[in-house]
């Protein structure tokens, strides 16, 4: 199982788009930082054929330190969730994506 990193993605942009390696890396970073900025605003981010990132508000609850058993309050917080599209779900199971997929 290989791990793909920024360097791989930048190299692919370099090969596909024909920009310099340096600019490919900068533009990859620009894409990621725009995605992050949108999510930071609490927006959802819908990438068709890939999935949807959304921000979910969680209420206060009582957690527990699993090691000591001590109860700790978990404050209200916002968490990021990713819902993969049907076509991405199909692809990781070795299937061809079927039908319309607009997530």
């Amino acid at each position: 199982m290989a791990t793909i990193t920024r360097a791989h993605l930048a190299e692919k942009i370099y090969a596909e788009v024909g920009l310099s390696r340096n600019e490919s890396a900068i533009l990859l970073e620009a894409v990621l930082s725009r995605m992050a900025a949108s999510l930071e605003k609490g927006e959802s981010l819908k990438i068709s054929g890939f999935g949807t990132f959304s921000v979910r508000q969680k209420g206060r609850r009582i957690g527990r330190n699993p090691k000591t058993g001590v109860e700790v309050p978990i404050l209200p917080r916002r968490v990021l969730v990713f819902r993969p599209s049907q076509s991405l779900r199909a692809r990781v199971n070795g299937l061809e994506p079927t039908g319309a997929d607009d997530e």
């Binding site: 791990t3 920024r6 993605l9 942009i13 596909e16 692809r91």
Partner: peptide, 28 residues
């Protein structure tokens, strides 16, 4: 080009996952 850059990013992540690889983007 803007379209191909964004398209390439997601296509590569999809291809990696379809191959059973993981994609790690530090900080993201």
């Amino acid at each position: 080009d803007a379209e191909r850059i964004v398209g390439t990013v997601f296509e590569e992540i999809i291809t990696a996952l379809a191959n059973g690889d993981r994609v790690e983007l530090r900080g993201f």
